[in-house]
Write a protein that binds this DNA or RNA. Structure first.
Lengths: 138, 138
DNA sequence: GTGAATGCAAAACCTTTGCAACTGG
DNA sequence: CCAGTTGCAAAGGTTTTGCATTCAC
């Protein structure tokens, strides 16, 4: 007998001790993982069912501080969310508003190209490339 | 007779055709240029006189689209503004919240280290380095 | 003179919060 | 069981808007 394709096996990178994988958190993570278009909280609210908007925000906060989702700010509009944990930048099309992942070049310089003051401790680097995407260039 | 030090000579990079340099826009630009700590709209409202908050926002929008000021989004809090037009990144201290300019290393790789899809047109690249600044490391 | 910019207050928008009810481990 | 999570509605903070007045060119 074949089990119905329940939407979600955990399938999540190492979770912190004591992290509660609730139905809501799983659903939010599933949408992020399956539709990698960097949805906003409102997008996620529409794409899920029986989750309040406040809980969407709670889940995103929980997933973000658990380290399995990154928050992306391309402009002043709603925050977007990204389940890609590999080093990458975000390309933001100023025409259509889409946000896509951009990988580093195969053998790009390995050290930070920025002259940080002595004593600075780097936690994360967020790079947003604004421009026009191939589809909008036509 | 010595003239009182009126706050402002134009002293602004090439302005677009038809840009009206009003008193308010000049004052906002002067504060940005003289106190390069990346103030928010609310900061600028406090540091200027006889300018309404709505006008602060109008001025920032005007200066930004005129290309002489850049908007900086380090997190979800208020937008910050930067009059430094040279290529640089922003270091955001997650402890004290300060934002400082970071210059590129003298001979860092000259081309984008990102594999952009063919047909992408890059307009600007915003890099925010989150971490702990030297003062907060103590 | 005239279109653009300002000031005010109100509205819009995104996100967080307080608190009672519920639930995952 | 019970601390942590949810849902709701209300509040908070930031930014925008409508419109009459004022101003830069």
């Amino acid at each position: 007998m074949i089990l119905p394709a329940t939407s979600s096996a955990p399938a999540i990178p190492a979770l912190p001790e004591g992290f509660r994988m609730t139905r809501q958190r799983q659903q939010v993570y599933d949408v992020l993982r399956d539709q990698r278009d960097h949805p906003t909280a409102a997008d996620l609210f529409e794409r899920t069912e029986d989750i309040s908007l406040a809980t969407i925000y709670n889940c995103l906060e929980a997933l973000t501080s658990a380290g399995i989702v990154r928050q992306v700010s391309t402009d002043r509009s709603s925050a977007r969310y990204c389940p890609n944990l590999h080093e990458h930048a975000h390309f933001h099309c100023s025409a259509c508003g889409s946000v896509t992942d951009v990988d580093p070049k195969p053998r790009a310089c390995s050290t930070t190209p920025w002259s940080l003051p002595t004593g600075s401790a780097v936690e994360t680097v967020d790079t947003v490339i604004h421009g026009i995407c191939p589809s909008c260039s036509n």
